[in-house]
Amino acid sequence: MKRLRVAITGLTSCSGCQLALLNCEAELPQLLELVDFRFFPMACSPATLESDYDAALVEGCLSMPHEQELLLSLRKRSRYLVAVGTCAAWGGVAALKNDQDREQLRQQVYGTDSTAALETFSPLPLNAVVQVDATVTGCPPEKEELIGLLTGLLKGSLPTLISYPVCTECRMKETLCLLTERSALCLGPLTLGGCGALCPALGVPCEGCRGPVPEANLAEAMEIYLQKGYAQEAACERLRRFCPGWRA
């Protein structure tokens, strides 16, 4: 079988989505037989862009012009471009203060008389700039999702975005509901599933790291919060940690 030629890179990010792939220790040796990591600066040398890739897996959001250039170039060279992780899909934590002036944020950290002239702009998800063929969310995504993504691509298929909330997975696992049983502000009802309700399974409320569920499922979720005495805005505000600018 022809090996899958992939490019993997991070933009404005923590490298967590790339590390999640490198954390597939058990599967890596076999993956290497099937996948040719042609461009993967974090793990392989040299990092020179080539003419074409079967797929580009891009982590992180966009906040500088050089990233935009790289992204456009990868788009042109790749059959599929996949947004990997919450930053790439929604903006993520880096976009937390997108409602504030970027220059002001810069000055807050670098000072007013700073010598470093930075061409930084408010972080954007990938689909603000290029066509994205598929999205895997999560901060970071689950290892199984990344392996599934690569093995799917080998067969020429793309993953579909999950549309059910984390709550569905809690119910499947018969996990105690933190919202109804403990009145904790758990974002499960509003958040895209796919993690297997990782946090609630350990008794920790979901912080919404996979981004919001499609609009159709929102009304029901809001109803539960109201019943528990939480203002709709309190839950929305929490969810904006990973998906800034989101409105119910």
């Binding site: 933009l11 404005t12 906040s63 500088m64 990233e67 934590v93 880096a94 937390l96 203060k97 944020l105 810069r106 807050q108 950290v109 670098y110 930075l118 930084t120 972080p123």
Partner: peptide, 9 residues
């Protein structure tokens, strides 16, 4: 590397 301005966030 692109700054995310964590100290401001």
């Amino acid at each position: 590397e692109s700054p995310r301005f964590f100290e401001a966030l």
